[in-house]
Structure formats: C-alpha cells, structure tokens
Design a protein around this nucleic acid. Structure first.
Lengths: 318, 318
DNA sequence: TTGAAAGCGATACCAT
DNA sequence: ATGGTATCGCTTTCAA
C-alpha cells in the first residue's frame, strides 16, 4: 500500500507538503494542491489511521466498561453514550468486564498505554481509589455517586423520587410494603437509598421479612411473590428494582387469583407501560450521554447527579 | 513517559531485547530478563498500544456499524457480538450511522486506513457492491442475505418460521389477517418474506388493506389497529414485525372493549411473554456472535443463515 | 543470546 | 510556499 512518501515522490513534492494537503492546512500553492491530489488519486492512497494516532498521541477512542448487557442500567447508559459519540469524532470501544477485576485492571492498563483517550466505568469490581490512581493518565468517569472520592462521576440521584414514591404509598395508606433488591443493602447504594426513603417517610425501620434480595428477572419476581404468599406474608404494595421484575410478581397474583398489590416498578421499561404500573424513571441514557461529555470536557473533577422521576400510573383495572 | 529506549538504557540492554521480554519471546537470558523487568518496574513503564499497533499493522479493533439502537435487531446483534468479543483480544468499536451514506462511507474509509481489522454492517444505506469493493482491505460481514453478491454474511432465515406461523393461523381458520411492516415490501426483505409465506400457505395474493407499513413502536401499533377498526376493516389475526408493536394493537382492542385478534409478534421480547402472545424468535444475538466470529475467520466468503423459530403461545385468557 | 538499524506512516518544527 | 528531518515508540530482520 502506498504511503505518504510515495505520494511525495510521485507528485514531486515533499512528505511535509503532502501532509499539509491531507490536513487542509494553509500555505500550499494551488499547483501543489492539484499535483498532490492527482498523485493521491492515481495511487489510490489513504493515510494510515494508526500512524496518525501515533503522531498525534491520540486515538479518538473512548472505552466504556460494561459488566454485562442484561440490565437497562447498562444498555441505556450505552445507548446514551452512543448518541453522544455520534456528534463527535470519537468512537466508543466496548469493554466487557463481567465484574472481573483482572479484566478491569487490564482496561486501566490499556488506558495507560494510550489505547483510549478516556474511560467510562459504568460499574466496577475494583475500588474507586484504584480508578482514581489511573486518572493521571487519561480522564475516567464513573457512573455512581463517588462520595468524597475525587473522581468525575454521573449518577442517579434517586432519593427524591424514592421519597415521592413512598409518600404516594403512604397517602394511599399502604402499610405492608414488600421490596425487591438486586443486592443487599450492605453492598448496594441503591438498596440503601430505598431503605432510607422508607424510613424517612414511614418513620420506622424496615424489617427483613418485607425484603427479597437477589431479584433481577421476571421469573425471580414471580418466585419472590410466591414465597411471600406461601410463608403467609401479606403484601399490600411492592416497591421493586425494576418493571420487568415486578411484572413477574404481578403474574403470580393473577395466576393464583389473588388480588394484586399496588406496584411500583423502576426503569420506565415497556412492561410498566403495557401493564399500567407506576414506575421510577432513572434516566440512565442521560447518564451515559453526560458521562461521555464529561470525558471530553475533563478539565476538572465534576460530579453530576441526575434526579430520578416518580411516574404514577393509576391502576384502571380494579 | 518512559519509552522502550529508556528501559534499554537503564537495564543496559538494547531496545530489541526489551521488546523480546515485553512479548515473552525466546532467546533471552535469565539475567537480561531480570534486569529488564527491574528497570520496567522502576520506571513504571508500559508499552504504547498505538506504537505497537503501528508496528504490527493491526489494531485488534472490530468496527460494528449500527443505524440506531431502538430495535432489538441491532441491540441483540450488538449483545451477541459483545459476548463473542469477550473471549478474544479484540475490541468492538461502535459506529453509529443513522443510515447516513456519508457516515457509512467514512467508516469504510477508516477500515481502509486500518483503523479496524474488520467491519460488521448490521444494516446499510450503501449498496452491497460498495461494501464488497472494500473487502479487499479488511474483512467485512453483513447481517442480511446477500443473495448472489460475494460477501460474507450472517442473517435470519425467516421463511420456515414464517410459514409455520402462517400454517398455524390457517389451521385455526383465521382468514382476515393483518400485517405490520416496518418498511414496505419493495425495499424490505423481511416484508417480502412475510408476503411470500402468506401467499405460499394461503395460496392467494395479499391485498393492501391488510397491510400497515411504517409501524415500529407500541404507539404506532395502537394507532394502526385503530385505523383498521375505524375504516371498517375487521381483523381476525395480526402478524406483526415485533412483540412490542403488536402489544400496542392489543391495547387498542382492550381499551375499546373489542375482542382481541389472535396475535403473532416477533423477536421474543418480554412483552410477548408477559401478555402470552405467540412470537417468532429471530435469534439476533446469535447473528451478532457469528458475525464477529466470521470476521476473525475470514479466510473465505461465507454465508450463514440462522433459522428463526415460531413460538406458539395459546391465549389462556379467552 | 544480543544489538544495530531499518521499518511502520504519519506530524510538525525549523529552515529557507 | 516548501522541504528536510526529527519524532512518536515499538517490532523485526540481519548480522555478530
């Protein structure tokens, strides 16, 4: 394949001038322009992207670390980031991690090796401090509230919407409220926020029997509802970690001809629209979009909360 | 930042030997190993990925062109490709196109410039021939049946499942069947397949009034059903291009207390499971997986059909 | 086993 | 306006 020197030779000019033409710089005569362009056309030449990257010391690639793509948190952030990237010359590189620390570390090392101009961590197995220690090489943005840690972040600010949801439930006089969590409150900020909102609005502790942990799918939601029922726990409302999940619970009550509790889902998935279930919109796509933008404008550490929204849907079937 | 020559100097060996250590090549003495590794550690050195790419003439990046991410065809292919990439040293680069030919051409040019080691076209605005003309630079795989065109491809083989669906409808004695298409049969292979399956099973032409074109969302499905109803077209069954879409239609009939036609969706989305709607599983994730694998094993042009599956779900509500 | 040096293919500074 | 050349940082061949 032809390179810039072939063009230089063919056109009778130097590589420097060819480069100027390539990059549309000034100070090139009309004549040089034409001859060089002719040579380029004749030799069917295109400049090498890699060589260009090396020279510039940039790749125009932004890595996005995803543990998996089974949850809207990740797919929506990805979607938002893709949309944002569309407006720019940067490309998104998908970095699947499966929460594997080795993998994540490998990606950080690649960042250090200039494989990417920045890294978005949608979630992580590694400590935030480890991420921070790599920010000196290139910008890194995470998608959770980093607290006091000095790292750029875009994250859901759920408390207001959670409290709004709880207040709604309280006004409707629901007392026995079941909760679906993906992971227990000890390790999940989301679960903690939920518990906190409950305590704030209801003014009492949340007892274990009202909580189901490790619930992430339609099927698991169904089973969780079944378990409550079979163990004699009566539920008046369910506050769920997802729409699809709570749709599973709903199906259990329907299948067994039981009255369906009031449901609050999460993520504004289609299922809640179909089934007219109230939900909480966590606006993940916007997190992805902002995260991408934050990588490009990484002059300083910035922490951006995206407030969730409580979406009421009255059940019109009862 | 330290480079390979710094390590060479510090360790007392040459850059060549350092490179050998870096790449775990043979013919390096234990002593050299140790000294060089010590120097690497001391200077906190990592090799530059870009320089390495330039030297090798490879990036280990595979581009995947996506018009958008609003349809499971694209998101599922992407998911499949991500999963496949996880097993390899290659990375997926997201290339959003919005069906813009300029954009697509830019990506092809980038391929030529060695920005990627291969390209997956999930869909395209450009002609297949244009894609073919770039396969001489690096492997390209498309996600549709290319017919006689000489390009590697992985695609849905829908006809068997479509015919199975039609036969099911015929056995149930449904005569007035409505169809939802994303794009008209003239330009959409999928729509053509549907028409063909209908004609084959029912042995008659499909008249225009039974077809709704440009239907892609829940809302549009709702509207389409409404239009049929308002124009006096009575439908006994709907053969849809998607589960969510036909779920919209279903909602219209429920809202207006009309009897719901027999529904056949497509894509095995959660909505069809929730609503117990029959569907056609086009196994898009497998297309993405195979497409990725085909890029890596691109010794020859290969065309792989992935047969769809008709999934019957009896309506238990009637 | 080791090293010198020639690529890889651009960019950009400094002359002219 | 143009060119020479150093530079980016690594890999690989060839010779020793």
């Amino acid at each position: 394949m032809a390179n810039i020197h072939d063009i230089a030779k063919k056109s009778g000019y130097s590589a420097a001038t060819v480069s100027r033409v390539l990059n549309q710089r000034k100070h090139v005569s009309k004549e040089a322009q034409e001859k060089i362009k002719a040579a380029i056309k004749e030799l069917d030449y295109v400049p090498s992207e890699i060589a260009r990257d090396l020279s510039r010391g940039k790749t125009l690639n932004i890595g996005i670390v995803l543990p998996h793509t089974k949850h809207p948190f990740f797919t929506e952030i990805l979607r938002g980031a893709i949309d944002a990237s569309f407006q720019t010359d940067y490309h998104l590189v998908i970095l699947p991690s499966a929460y594997d620390k080795e993998r994540e570390l490998a990606y950080l090392e690649q960042l250090r090796r200039n494989a990417y101009d920045g890294l978005i961590f949608t979630s992580r197995g590694l400590s935030l401090e480890t991420l921070v220690s790599y920010t000196k090489y290139s910008p890194i943005v995470c998608c959770e509230d980093p607290g006091e840690v000095e790292i750029s972040a875009v994250y859901s600010e759920r408390n207001i919407a959670y409290e709004a949801g709880m207040r709604w439930l309280k006004e409707k006089n629901y007392q026995k409220i079941g909760f679906f969590f993906s992971r227990e409150a000890k390790i999940s900020a989301t679960s903690r926020e939920t518990v906190k909102a409950y305590q704030k609005v209801y003014g009492q502790e949340l007892t274990e029997q009202w909580i189901k942990t490790g619930i992430a799918t339609y099927e698991e939601g169904y089973q969780a509802a079944k378990e409550w029922h079979e163990s004699g726990v009566e539920i008046e409302a369910i506050f769920s970690n997802g729409d699809d999940v709570v749709a599973g619970a709903r199906q259990f009550y329907l299948d067994y001809k039981l009255s369906v509790p009031f449901l609050v889902g999460q993520e504004m998935q289609l299922s809640s629209q179909l089934l007219n279930i109230s939900t909480i919109d966590n606006r993940f796509a916007e997190i992805g979009k902002k995260a991408f933008e934050l990588i490009l404008d990484s002059s300083r550490v910035e922490k951006i909360g995206i407030p969730s929204r409580f979406v009421v849907r009255e059940d019109n079937k009862s």
